[in-house]
Design a protein around this nucleic acid. Structure first.
Lengths: 365, 365
DNA sequence: GTTAGCACTCTCCCCATTAGAGTGCTAACA
DNA sequence: TGTTAGCACTCTAATGGGGAGAGTGCTAAC
């Protein structure tokens, strides 16, 4: 019974670690509970199955493995995977061949378009066989590059091209019917006066525009006053749009390869997975995670029930932040069953996030 | 045996039609083969099950129903659904309540953004319980509204805002390193000279720009000549981008509610569905269908194996074109199992496509 | 500390049986 | 002549009872 006296959590001896690693790596491949016989057969442990059984019992007592039922082999617990990821996983640098493949794929697409983010999701999906996730790099504070206005009766639709990040479109209601010529004048003026400014800086300008429309010495019905009012209204509206964009931590989540995950045997009769998908559509969740993630290089692994929403209890996330804090950040990563090839996923995510860093540096330099 | 002598295809008497309709509507709800007893019980046919059995045998001989096996009830064939859709289906105008719900949803979102198309897909999905599909309205010939250029060494990234349709971004390589001030000059000039023009019209201008750079009397190294060359290069590139956009029949397919379809019992153990999804990602397919569809008001129904790709043999599409031919057209519709509530799907697609027509009229007026 | 041996437990698969659903046919009926 | 009741027949789906097999935990010997 000496074995059972070992502390539930604590330093595992090298042999136990080797066996834990073997169980996990076997289970990741076969998706069926791993027995002692299979281990001695496929991994040259230099031990008999009886000895291995003893160690397996220890690992189970330590909470790193479980038993679906008495006469089945062991499967890793979330804690088992956690231990594996933190201290047992092999080198997580991606083989050169795969690096090349990814670089090649990225080379095919043009810079400076949101295709990058879709491509990142697609690449991650195809390389890992799990679902790939990516968000666009969202700038910390949007700066205006150009504004374009089109008249529509007493409405105007606007296109707002920021210096970085994604284009915004919208509408604003005008205080009166305005023709295109006047709107173009307004847009030109604002393009000159507000270029490169952030939401806050534009907001600071707004009172001045309104003041110009209501100066004591000015006829409020004059064309000049009316146009000043219009300028103020437009400036206010685009500042609001930019402010809203700044407030959101994530603009859009691209995903690809959800079907890969669907195919995994543990989700064959998938009730659970549906809820995972809907949880994923909630951008707030990834946004929260983004807040928790530190360091551009670090890979964050969230295993099974470590994910706070219960729906995510059967899947793991391997995520990395990319970009420059304070400038623009986004998330890339993969989602898969907890039974996931973590080292490879970590390597792939790390490499792709590195590429995304390069991209951001390039675009925001 | 008199019954068997009836022509395989031909005018069905009213009773046979009523029974066919009953079988289909029952099967759509229950998803299990329909027997004669169930029919006399739930539909007041004023007949005995034995008589109904006779009629069912006729309908099967006519190819409108099948038999999974001897002792099971009947299920409709693709031809049965086709007959139903064409001559038996109840009124396909959407109930006022549902019309209101849809209008309400559409009222929530801003005009003039691509949210409309996503919204159409989402609405169709939620209203029909199938998957919703929508493509953006693609203009027949893009016209330039505004061009924006940003320098990046010897590259420039451009944003091309068309008068209608979706914004395009891209990059072009420059013949030399160009600073932002010069690029802005170029953009301003092109914005003045090319505003409102189509790809063809812009292409027509390009030779003139190049000619200006190589006029006999001009110093080829002069700033003026070099800038004219640049103008030509940029004009050429944006014309190409617009031309490519014109050539594509569909720019992007939004879909929503694919999970709805996944949940249908016929796809519980879904090998097939995966292939459907991948087939759907191929935009060319919807593009081909778009070409086949005529008339803005008409709803097109493609049932099971009527779809040319074999993968689509187990699903049906209910699609409508919307927009103005020659100006801008797109597709909306739903995808679901062949066992689909066709009248309701047709009504919903019809109503939504009507709304999309209004939208296009509004935007392109 | 390790190993061989062994009893034990549990799942999974196969098989036979059965209940039930639904048909097709026939003979009687209106 | 069309309709109906009755009935034999067929096939599926569900049920339950064995093995067979996998894998464990324990013990005694090395």
């Amino acid at each position: 019974m000496a074995r059972r006296d070992r502390p539930a959590i604590g330093p595992l001896d090298a042999r136990a670690q080797a066996i834990l690693r073997a169980v996990i790596e076997e289970y990741v491949v076969t998706a069926t509970p791993v027995g002692s016989a299979a281990l001695v057969e496929r991994y040259h442990l230099g031990l008999s199955s009886a000895t291995v059984r003893g160690v397996l019992a220890d690992l189970e007592a330590a909470g790193l493995l479980t038993h679906p039922h008495t006469s089945a082999g062991r499967i890793p617990t979330d804690r088992g995977y956690r231990f594996y990821v933190e201290s047992l996983a092999d080198s997580t640098t991606l083989p050169a061949v795969e690096q090349l493949m990814i670089r090649h794929q990225f080379g095919q697409v043009q810079f400076a378009s949101d295709h990058w983010f879709r491509l990142a999701a697609t690449t991650l999906a195809s390389m890992t066989g799990s679902a790939g996730l990516a968000t666009a790099a969202k700038p910390a504070a949007v700066r205006l590059r150009r504004l374009d206005l089109v008249a529509q009766d007493h409405l105007a639709s606007f296109v707002l091209v920021p210096l970085e990040g994604t284009i915004k479109q919208g509408q604003l209601s005008l205080p009166r019917r305005v023709d295109q010529a006047e709107l173009t004048r307004v847009a030109n003026r604002l393009n000159v006066e507000l270029a490169g400014l952030t939401a806050a800086a534009i907001e600071a300008q707004v009172p001045a525009y309104y003041a110009a429309a209501t100066l004591p010495g000015i006829d409020h019905d004059s064309a000049q006053a009316r146009e000043a009012l219009l300028v103020g209204r437009v400036a206010e509206r685009i500042a609001r749009t930019m402010r809203e964009s700044d407030a959101a931590s994530i603009e859009e989540v691209y995903s690809d390869g959800l079907l890969n995950v669907m195919e995994a045997p543990e989700f064959a009769h998938s009730e659970k997975l549906r809820r995972v998908f809907t949880a994923l559509e909630n951008r707030a969740y990834l946004g929260d995670l983004l807040g928790m993630m530190t360091g551009s290089g670090r890979i964050h692994v969230f295993i099974g029930h470590e994910n706070t929403p219960a729906e995510m209890g059967d899947v793991s996330l391997v995520l990395a932040r990319y970009g420059r804090p304070g400038r623009a950040v986004g998330v890339v990563g993969v989602l898969g069953p907890t039974r996931m090839a973590y080292p490879h996923a970590i390597g792939t995510v790390g490499f792709v996030s590195g590429l995304m860093n390069e991209l951001v540096d390039h675009l925001y330099s």
